[in-house]
Design a binder for these strands. Structure first.
Length: 913
RNA sequence: GGGCGGUUAGCUCAGUUGGUUAGAGCGCCUCCCUUACAAGGAGGAGGCCGCAGGUUCGAGUCCUGCACUGCCCACCA
């Protein structure tokens, strides 16, 4: 027996309890042994959140979509494995702990590396679980038994394995190049971590005196302070203006250093004066030019972007102070030829927002476009090819182009970071010669010279290096495990566009490389099939890129703008289910989500609607003890029973189709309109007729269908709203449910036999009649408490239908008796006519003639316009010849309908006069 | 500099391969506390589908141009 429910639904009263229950009962764990030929597999990798993270709206959307997918597949009989973990997030975590230290007046350098790293671990143990707890709270149905942390010992070992192998294959190398340097984070960062911004600045023109002449050569720069490190001036060999200066030297102002004029394509004649200063240690293009001409590289800055001894009298100045001083000094010497406003593209560090300094430094790189030793395709080429071939598919499709374009223009990846928190690079240098030994574990002696005095590389790896490996390292790699045979490649990855290159692209590169000989166990069916995809090295078959969640004004959420919406607050206010439903319903592909809490409020109302439907059903179950939703026979049910079953099956089919196409919005919309519209507005209202009957068997029969449909509706809603459906499903079975959780129950089957087009058409005639009567009553201002008789004209079929459902019409339209007449009712004021029936409400009150006339005239105008259009088309031979039969037939039918309706409307207008 | 997307009701968005009457939620107006639900019920108003051309029997949907708008990528001074 269901228990008594409070009148209003209070999510906070039930959610935490179920969240805990799901974890405690280990309902979503999928050991390899639970998978077999009879149990198809669906698998997803969670984009691991940073351990420092807190759940934000982006996560909430991502997790909602993944959870819907995981739960939907699970309920359809798949071994649905969603693999969770957290990321150690190198810079983010290190900075967070450093801030904490600063508040204690401590610094990491004073502590030393070992103590600092220990301190970070301590932090991780204390606070690192916050986001995991949040995931549990929002009901993510992940397999917690498989939870990883990217710095777990086994994952760290896998990282070293990968590094050593790639190094041995020549795909990882160490070298001195210009890298993106963040002076605030004091580490190199990758191209991807640099955000480009166009900033108003100045273009300075500086005169360099040409030695042995009275001439000056003028160069243009946006960064005058770097001139202190110039080692040449370049002009284009084709540039006639400078032919006479070929081979000459200039005296670098302020530094009074002689530097050559070189001929190089670096200088473009069209730009500025056509001459360009060359600073090999501070600009990537100049660096390349420097190599071509064997120029010295003079590094004038330290790691904090302050000038060093190489900058002469400017040493010690910050780079921007130095700029001002250099410009002032040049001006004083009369060497500043010009200074104009200029839009400068500056690169900023993604994390610290400090301006990135191109800096010459020795770093570790991963080769993206280099072929293997035996001529194998490069990492980038393989990663491109599998996407081109459709082995990995993107939704929305346009991300394929974006991905390919990026892959085609990729540069080598700087993977070393000057941090302490992270996977330390497994390379050792010998004290004597600085030979490099790369090894899985600390070597005893130098591989080259045998020296035993070894120091490990102090740099750690870019965080994305280890997360790029997760698709296989989280499944036990480098050991060959059963897990890999079953779950690699995973079925689907749902993630944000933001990390398409950071993470998705890298996973594809690593996967295709390290899993190239992998074979998935094809005796186990995979969700989606993928029979056409033969390549099992890819990390996943499908990638769904979700939208960006913005605020209600479509602004990107950011801490600085202060417009961040905290999902936890929304959840506390409206409940998790309503929050999830909002995000699902708004997730239409290709558009960002403007998150508006007003929408969530609406879905809280929806949850309340479900709750109250349950209260109604439970109340009636108490009158017929022992009733359980045991399914109902197909035949021998009332019209509305067969109708609602048809609608349920149709809706289940539509939801399946929508989710198959990742149309979360469509799916959510379908279940919403089914539950609120079909089930509550119509079916429950109709069922009251029989529920109020005297005969127990009538009540029983009605209740059987009602509970069965409700049970199905709950199961269909469950992936979207797991909490309320769990609560009500348990209650429906008197807290003795057939399974531990609705999450383990079956998603409603799509039974085409129960989809009955004719029945639905008949029902819609009844619905039309009921709505028409309600309209008339409203127009006539009939008191709501007064029921009034109606007169109906209809053909025999419709008439019989109405007669058979007389009570339904009477109840839902507040009618006190139906009289059938044998002639059209068009001449009666206030009558409504449709193609299937005319109806009049008998009521003594006067019709508002003016309003009625206005309404009829408006209808008439609209119909006449439509009729004119239909006639024109039907008279057009081209149309008749070329349009499909279905369309022509439909238009003919409509035209006939219009003719009748227009005639009736005209007569009604005449009658009014 | 390259690329991608958006423009449909007051607001936020749907609208499948072109096909008969362009939809939803919120908001708005009218009526109703009818014993599941006022977080509710019933009824209603509201749209030259950004602009201009073109293709087609037929265009919100395809093509071209324009306008506005957003995003991403980019080692050129």
């Amino acid at each position: 027996m269901p228990h008594e429910l409070p009148k209003a639904y209070d999510p906070s009263a039930i959610e935490a309890r179920w969240a805990e229950y799901w974890v405690k009962e280990r309902l979503f764990e999928v050991p390899a042994s639970a998978v077999g030929p009879g149990r198809p597999v669906f698998c997803m990798q969670l984009p691991p959140p940073n351990v420092t993270g807190r759940l934000h709206m982006g996560h909430m959307l991502n997790h909602t979509q993944m959870d819907i997918m995981a739960r939907w597949h699970r309920m359809r009989g798949f071994a649905s494995m969603w693999l969770p973990g957290t990321d150690h997030a190198g810079i983010a975590t290190q900075m967070m702990v450093e801030r904490q230290l600063a508040s204690e007046g401590k610094q990491r350098r004073q502590m030393g590396r070992e103590a600092f790293v220990e301190r970070v671990w301590e932090w991780k143990r204390h606070y690192g679980g916050a986001i995991v707890e949040q995931m549990k709270r929002v009901g993510d149905s992940v397999d917690w038994s498989r939870e990883y942390f990217t710095m777990d010992e086994n994952l760290s070992r896998a990282v070293r394995e990968v590094f050593v192998r790639l190094y041995e294959e020549g795909l990882i190398y160490r070298g001195k190049y210009i890298v993106n340097w963040c002076p605030r984070c004091m580490t190199a960062i990758s191209d991807l971590e640099v955000v480009h911004e166009e900033t108003p600045g100045k273009l300075y023109e500086i005169k360099y005196p040409v030695i042995g002449t009275n001439e000056f050569i003028t160069v243009a720069t946006t960064r005058p302070e770097t001139m202190l490190g110039d080692t040449a001036v370049a002009v284009n060999p084709r540039d006639g203006r400078y032919t006479h200066l070929h081979g000459k030297r200039v005296l670098l102002p302020l530094m009074e250093r002689e530097i050559p004029i070189i001929l190089d394509e670096l200088a473009q004649p069209e730009f500025g004066t056509g001459a360009v200063k060359v600073t090999p240690a501070h600009d990537p293009n100049d660096f390349q030019a420097g190599l071509r001409h064997n120029l010295p590289q003079i590094d004038i800055m330290d790691e904090t972007a302050h000038m060093n001894q190489n900058a002469g009298s400017y040493a010690g100045l910050d780079r921007f102070e130095a700029r001002e001083r250099v410009v002032a000094d040049l001006q004083q010497r009369g060497l500043l030829a010009g200074m104009k406003d200029y839009v400068v593209p500056v690169g900023k560090c993604d994390r610290s927002k400090d301006i990135v300094e191109p800096r010459l430094s020795t770093q570790w790189f991963m080769a993206m476009t280099k072929q293997g030793k035996n001529g194998e395709a490069s990492l980038a080429a393989r990663a491109r090819e599998v996407v081109e071939r459709g082995e990995v598919r993107f939704t929305p499709e346009n991300y394929k182009t974006i991905y390919l374009h990026w892959m085609e223009n990729i540069h080598d990846w700087c993977i070393s970071r000057q941090l302490w928190w992270g996977h330390r690079i497994p390379a050792w240098y010998c004290g004597e010669h600085q030979h490099i030994t790369v090894a899985r574990e600390a070597p005893a002696k130098c591989a080259t010279c045998g020296s035993t005095s070894l120091t490990q590389e102090s740099d750690v790896l870019d965080t994305w290096f280890s997360s790029g490996l997760l698709p296989f390292t989280s499944l036990g790699w480098p050991e060959k495990t059963r897990d890999q045979e079953i779950f690699y490649p995973s079925t689907l990855l749902i993630t944000a566009y933001e990390i398409l290159f950071f993470w998705v692209a890298r996973m594809i590169m690593f996967g295709c490389h390290f899993m190239r000989d992998h074979k998935q166990d094809r005796s186990i069916k995979q969700a989606g099939g993928f029979a056409d995809r033969a390549d099992d090295s890819v990390p996943f078959r499908e990638v769904y890129i979700h939208a960006l969640v913005r605020d209600a004004e479509r602004q990107k959420m950011s801490k600085t703008k202060g417009n961040v919406i905290d999902p936890i607050e929304i959840i506390q206010k409206y409940g998790t289910d309503a929050t999830r439903f909002t995000l699902a319903a708004m997730a239409s592909p290709g558009t960002d989500i403007a998150f508006n809490p007003a929408r969530t409020e609406g879905y809280r109302a929806f949850a309340n609607k479900i709750w109250n439907a349950a209260r109604f059903i439970f109340m009636n179950m108490e009158r017929a003890p022992g009733t359980l939703p045991n399914g109902v026979p197909l035949a021998a049910q009332a019209l509305e029973d067969r109708w609602i079953l048809s609608r349920l099956n149709r809706t289940a089919r539509e939801v399946n189709e929508a989710l198959d196409a990742y149309r979360f919005d469509e799916a959510a919309h379908r279940v919403y309109t089914f539950f609120w519209g079909d089930f509550c507005d119509w079916y429950i209202e109709l069922s009251k007729l029989r529920l109020n009957a005297e005969e127990p068997e009538v009540v029983q029969a009605a209740l059987a269908v009602l509970t069965t449909v409700f049970d199905g509706a709950l199961r269909m809603l469950s992936p979207f709203m797991p909490f309320i459906t769990e609560e009500l499903w348990h209650a429906l079975y008197g807290d003795k449910p057939p399974l531990k959780s609705i999450a383990l129950a079956a998603f409603p089957e799509t039974d085409d036999e129960r989809i009955d087009e004719r029945l639905e058409a008949e029902m819609s005639v009844l619905q039309d009649l009921i709505v028409s009567v309600r309209q008339i009553r409203h127009d006539l201002k009939v008191e709501p408490k007064v029921s009034a008789p109606i007169r109906v004209f209809a053909d025999d079929g419709v008439r019989r239908l109405i007669e058979e459902n007389r009570e339904a019409v009477e109840r839902l339209a507040n009618v006190s008796g139906i009289t059938f007449v044998d002639s059209e009712l068009s001449k009666v004021a206030s009558a409504r006519h449709t193609a299937r029936f005319d109806v009049v409400v008998e009521y003594e009150k006067k019709v508002d003639t003016a309003a009625e006339r206005a309404r009829l005239e408006k209808d008439l105008a609209k119909m006449e316009a439509e009729q004119a259009n239909a006639r024109r088309q039907l008279a057009n031979e081209q149309f008749l010849a070329k349009a499909p039969e279905k369309v022509v037939e439909g238009l003919r039918k409509r035209a006939a309908e219009l003719e009748v309706l227009i005639k009736k409307t005209r007569e009604a207008l005449d009658a009014l006069a």
